[in-house]
């Protein structure tokens, strides 16, 4: 016999299902009267310091279909690399946003500030990135990934450098499509399957 551990096991995930919007963005889902507004409508407030950018993309299933029922959340640092709540963080950067694929087109849009570099816990600098979380019907445990930027120096980023198949690195790169505009598509399967994270 040995002593028993008293640690607990994390509660099992389940899919958010087809009506995840009712719970997380009820106004978007047509339940406008229940809260004053949906949570996480804006990653930034007017006047946030730094480069204001707009990222658009689709979430694409294994058949190539940009599905319409994805719910996404983003979390990021401000332009100086500080997270909301940390000392010296830009008070106009919420850092958190919640958004959904459009019901007609499947396109989602995130308007935010380009984040600064954030150190890992052993002091290495990570390239600017936005953490992304995806929930939908058919996704049994929500997916984590990151948006990096193709026009930044990503050469020293510890996470990107862990990707053995270098041909997969571009799946984490937002492509510049114009001044302050980027494109980031998420592929759940296929040859260009996005790198998802277990972190």
């Amino acid at each position: 016999m040995v002593q028993s551990l008293d640690t607990l096991v994390e509660t099992a995930s389940q899919t958010g299902g087809p009506y995840v919007h009712i719970g997380c963005i009820p106004t978007f889902a047509g339940l406008g009267a229940v809260y004053p507004e949906d949570l996480g409508l804006r990653a930034i407030e007017d006047g946030a310091k730094g480069e204001i950018i707009t990222i658009t993309g689709e979430v694409i299933d294994g058949t190539g279909w940009a599905f319409r029922d994805a719910l996404l959340e983003s979390w990021q640092a401000d332009a100086s690399g500080k997270f909301a709540g940390q000392e010296g963080a830009d008070p106009l950067v919420n850092g958190f946003a919640r958004f959904a694929a459009d019901k007609e087109t499947g396109l989602w849009t995130l308007r935010t500030v380009k984040p600064g570099k954030v150190k890992t816990r052993d002091g290495r600098l990570q390239a600017p990135h936005i953490s992304l979380w995806i929930a939908a019907r058919g996704i049994n445990i929500s997916l984590h990934t990151r948006i990096y930027f193709e026009d930044e120096d990503n050469s020293e980023d510890p996470l990107l450098n862990r990707i053995e198949q270098r041909n997969r690195v571009p799946t984490l790169m937002a492509k510049k499509t114009g001044a302050g505009e980027y494109r980031f598509d998420i592929h759940l399967q296929g040859a260009s399957e996005t790198v998802f994270l277990d972190i």
Partner: peptide, 15 residues
């Protein structure tokens, strides 16, 4: 059609 086919990339958590 909505489950990734390839292994997740693991790494210790960061801030």
């Amino acid at each position: 059609t909505r489950s990734p086919r390839w292994p997740l990339l693991s790494m210790e958590s960061t801030p």
